[in-house]
Design a protein around this nucleic acid. Structure first.
Lengths: 201, 201
DNA sequence: CGGGGCGGATGACGGATGTCATGCGCACGT
DNA sequence: ACGTGCGCATGACATCCGTCATCCGCCCCG
C-alpha cells in the first residue's frame, strides 16, 4: 500500500484527486494540505511514501517543498503535479530532487502509474515537457535582472522600482533593457510575459 | 439520479472530479469534454441534467457555453466551477443564465450540494464572491477600451495595437489612457493587471 | 427642434522609457 | 598579476507613452 500526501491550494481539486487515487487498490491518501509550508510536517506525521505537490501554493511553492522533503525526510519521494508546463519549472523541480513532473492535462489514468513509478524509485516526467525544457534551456537572466523584472511585473514605474531595490533609476533601466534583450522581447511587458511563460521568475 | 456533464480543459482535474462526484449515490457523470465548443453536443447526446463548466477552456469559454446551453437546451442547467474568483466572472455568468458559481478552493463536500441545489432549480453562489462582485461592480470600461486593453496585455507597442485594430496611434493611446484612469492604475501594465483580476477582460 | 451629454477620433506636448557608450570596483579563474 | 565578467552608476539621445485640448457624430430629453 503506497501512502500518499496531497498538497494543492484548491480544496476542490485536492479532494477530487484524493477520490481518484483512492479508487486504486494499492494507493492510499493519508494526508492533505493546502499550503506549501505544511508539507514537511504532514508528510512526517503521516509517514507518507510519495508527496504530490502543486507548484503554486501559499507559504512555500511546491518545488521548494520538494527540496525540504529531500533534505529532512528523504524516505518520502515527491511528484510535482501542476497546471502550467513551464519549462523552467521542470528544470528547477529536477534540481530540487523531485522524481516526477506531471501536468494537469495528462489523462487521469496515467497519474496512478506516475505515482507507482516514483514510488519504485523511477522517474516520471512528461516527455513533451522534457524536450521543451531542453529547447528553452535555463534562464538567461542574471539574478538582479530576474529580481527587477519580477518587481516590474506588477506594473510599477522605473522610479518606484528603483526605490524598492535601492538602486539608481538608470541602473534599473539597464537591467530591464538587458532582460528585454535576453528574452527577445521588445517591451518591458512582453519581457515579463515571456519570462513568466518559461518559469524564469 | 442526476446526470452530469463535466467540462474542463485539464484532463486530470476532469477525471478527478468525475471520481469525486461518482462517489455520491444520486449523481452520475454521463459525459466529459475538454473544450467549450463541445459542451452543447455532448450535453444533448447524453441528456445531461446539470453541466459543470470551467471558465478557461479552448474553443469557447464556460460562460459562453452556459449561454448556448440555456438557449438550445434549457433542460440542462449549468454550474460554473472555476479557479479564479474574479468578480466580473460571476456577474457575466449570472447574466448568461447559469444557476451556480463555485470556486475551486471551496471544500470538496460542498460541490455535491451545489449540484443538487442547481438541479432543484435553486441558486448556488459563493457568498464571499457575491459581495465582492457587488463591491467591485460592473466593468467601468467601454467596449473599445476593453478590447484595446486586452490586446495590450500581450505586451505589444502602441503601433502594433493600432495596426491590429485599424485605428490611429493617438486614438489607441487615448483608450489606454482612459482605461488607466478608470482602473485607478498609473501605468498600462498595472491597468492590465487590475482589469484581469476583476474579470473585466 | 435645439442644446447638452457622451463615446469616439485626432494631433500636439511633456515626461518616461529603452538603448548605448563609458567608467569604476570587485570577485573569479587562468 | 592579469584579463574577464558581473554589479552598479552616469549621461545623452531617440522613441514611446500618457495626458490634454479639441473636434465630430449621435442619441436622449426637455
Amino acid at each position: 500500500m503506497i501512502r500518499l500526501l496531497l498538497a494543492d491550494d484548491q480544496a476542490l481539486v485536492r479532494g477530487a484527486l484524493a477520490a481518484l487515487l483512492d479508487l486504486e487498490t494499492d494507493l492510499e491518501v493519508v494526508a492533505q494540505v493546502g499550503r506549501g509550508d505544511e508539507v514537511l510536517d504532514a508528510a512526517r506525521g503521516a509517514a507518507a511514501d510519495v508527496a504530490l505537490l502543486d507548484v503554486e501554493m501559499p507559504g512555500l511553492d511546491g518545488i521548494a517543498a520538494a527540496g525540504a522533503l529531500r533534505e529532512h525526510l528523504p524516505t518520502c519521494r515527491s511528484l510535482i503535479v501542476t497546471t502550467f508546463g513551464r519549462p523552467g519549472y521542470l528544470r528547477r523541480a529536477l534540481d530540487a530532487g523531485t522524481s516526477g513532473f506531471v501536468v494537469k492535462d495528462t489523462p487521469a489514468e496515467r497519474l496512478a502509474d506516475a505515482v507507482r513509478r516514483v514510488h519504485a524509485g523511477l522517474r516520471a516526467v512528461d516527455p513533451d515537457l522534457a524536450v521543451a525544457s531542453l529547447a528553452v534551456g535555463a534562464s538567461p537572466l542574471t539574478e538582479r535582472e530576474r529580481h527587477v523584472l519580477a518587481l516590474a511585473a506588477d506594473g510599477g514605474t522605473v522610479a518606484q522600482l528603483a526605490g524598492e531595490v535601492f538602486l539608481s533609476e538608470g541602473t534599473v533601466r539597464n537591467y530591464l533593457s538587458a532582460a528585454i534583450g535576453k528574452t527577445g522581447a521588445r517591451t518591458r511587458a512582453e519581457a515579463v510575459r515571456v519570462a513568466q511563460e518559461n518559469g524564469w521568475l
